[in-house]
Design a protein around this nucleic acid. Structure first.
Lengths: 195, 195, 195, 195
DNA sequence: GATGAATGAGCTTTCATTCAT
DNA sequence: AATGAATGAAAGCTCATTCAT
């Protein structure tokens, strides 16, 4: 069972996540976050000892969320090609319906090194997510669908690609909706990674 | 002919670029930049009217630099496959020898929307760079090497991939040097984009 | 008979005394004190209505403790010279074995006027201690051992001296242990005060 | 010649010294100090990088001031007994006419260890003052007036005594003015220290 | 008696920008 | 063109105290 305090921590993370991804880490103040929750500034600090710690907890939270989504796909009994498409779909769906998550990942986590340096070195805080991508890749290789190449070569292509598209969407330069690129992207990714 | 003032502006941009990419936009102060140039704070404002304007000039500067590098490749009389490889090479070489440029692109420009919102909407400030990628792509299509797909589907893959790899390198999770991934990546990109 | 509540108040004072003398009044928080006693913050306020009141009760507590030690000496049937030495001994022994007491006296009580202004004016809160020094002095005069001078001239010398030595010890500038100064100090004090 | 900046630093120290000694270190805020000088808060930090550093500079300043006063006495061609009296006189005169100095010494410097821990270990920041006391003592010994005892035994007596009297005055328990104790104290100190 | 979440004023410190020289 | 002292708003964070449970 989840404690009342744990529940409130999650509420705070949700609100902070939205504000951070909307306005950026340094343009979101603790009073902003507290205000959005009708909570006093001081009380915020009963839940998260610092703004940095809050930011780190949020990325872990996102990693767990996205990781669980990927796990569901990994557990399906479908071809690697279909899995590839489903991963793209879920990524874009998240980008459309919970844009703050992907945005936080791309614009806060990847770019605010100072904050994540201590405690999120390497991929510690996005471990759950990366692990599932790894599973997707290794199973694809094992069953003969994907070429056996360096994992990071494959990871960079797949995730760099998806991130890049969401960035373009965010910059409002994509003429079509993200959904409309799913066919192209699935084709390109699978073409690149398959044997 | 380039004026003395223009020359000093460039010096300032160089120094600011290094500091911004090293410590982030919000952790670099105007006194920091002035200090690194042994220049007074007040005088800095004779060259750039605000920190935001400085940041925007820098991204244009980078875009022009990288665009010119790509143009050189586009003007070579080689196959699209060779061009693809050369683009990757030049991108990684820049990432290794002038890391501040790629870092600024990925960590400052892409992530600090607040700053670039006014004056760099869409791709205005990275126009020169994007244009050359577009030329690479369209010529590749015209000569029958590349599949005729939506430009952004291709752009996202190529540039998202390269950015993703540099990010991974920056996070110190790549077991090998960037150079050692050139073969893999060239292969993957060309496989994805070719007919 | 001492009530259960009175007993707990004393426990709190002991803990607070240690923390105050170790970290200072303003660097010791009520949560610090409560935490050191595994007690809730709210409950602390059932025993002491404010931090200031707690601080004042502590100095009274110390005064009573030290006063009782001096009374024991005053009641002995020994010469004033021997009493003088015994007072120094007991003072230094306290400084060594219960350093928090002397430290509190010197560093909290004497220096944090704001806090003790209301309720501890003059020597109200250290009354028991000062009274015993007064008795020592007056009896010494009555029996012809000590010169009959202004009490405060004598008090300042004796207690200023002892406090000064403990300060020096605290600053780690004394080359020897406090004990090793007892001979010197006894000699100096008695020489100064005797007829 | 003294720079304009140095002059302003001294003005700030003067003002801060008064406020600190009057209200205590933790009850004096930077806005208090800035306000007393009709100066902006931000500008204060152009002169002293932190409140702690300001506090440390002040104690050095006081030490130099008092040290110079003692040096003048040390350089006089008078007996040790007369020097003893003159030191007490100058100390009490300072306590009466520049009470903030002695108060700062006794109530801020000696009691706020946290602040002076780094950078003022031992007697580093009161070096000039202590040195002159040492010279007084050693010359007194050399010329046969004072007993050759441990320096700190003598220092603790002399300075502890003077500090103690000022404390008592501050607590308003002395029935007479400080001046009226000079005879007594001179007699006591010299009696204790002389051969 | 006991808990600890909640309050909110207040603190130190930072920094883009201005402006008198 | 050049200096750097000055401004002042705003940030992150702390903490004595209260109060519903």
């Amino acid at each position: 069972m989840i404690s009342k305090k744990e529940k409130k921590k999650e509420l705070i993370m949700q609100s902070a996540l939205e504000l951070f991804s909307l306005k950026g880490f340094y343009n979101t103040t603790i009073p902003d976050i507290a205000g959005s929750l009708k909570m006093s500034v001081g009380n915020m600090y009963n839940y998260f000892k610092s703004k940095d710690i809050l930011a780190k907890e949020i990325i872990k939270y996102i990693s767990i969320y996205l990781g669980s989504k990927l796990r569901e796909i990994n557990e399906l009994d479908i071809s690697t090609e279909e899995k590839t498409r489903k991963i793209i779909e879920i990524y874009f769906q998240t980008a459309m319906h919970k844009p703050e998550m992907i945005d936080y990942f791309l614009r806060i986590y990847l770019s605010t090194r100072e904050v994540f340096k201590d405690g999120c070195e390497g991929m510690i805080c996005v471990n759950e997510f990366v692990t599932e991508v790894m599973i997707y890749f290794e199973e694809g290789v094992k069953c003969g669908d994907l070429r056996d190449q360096d994992f990071f070569s494959a990871f960079g292509l797949f995730m760099g690609y998806l991130g890049g598209m969401v960035f373009l969407k965010g910059e409002d330069v994509l003429p079509k909706g993200l959904d409309d690129y799913i066919d192209d992207i699935s084709y390109n990714v699978y073409k690149a990674l398959s044997v």
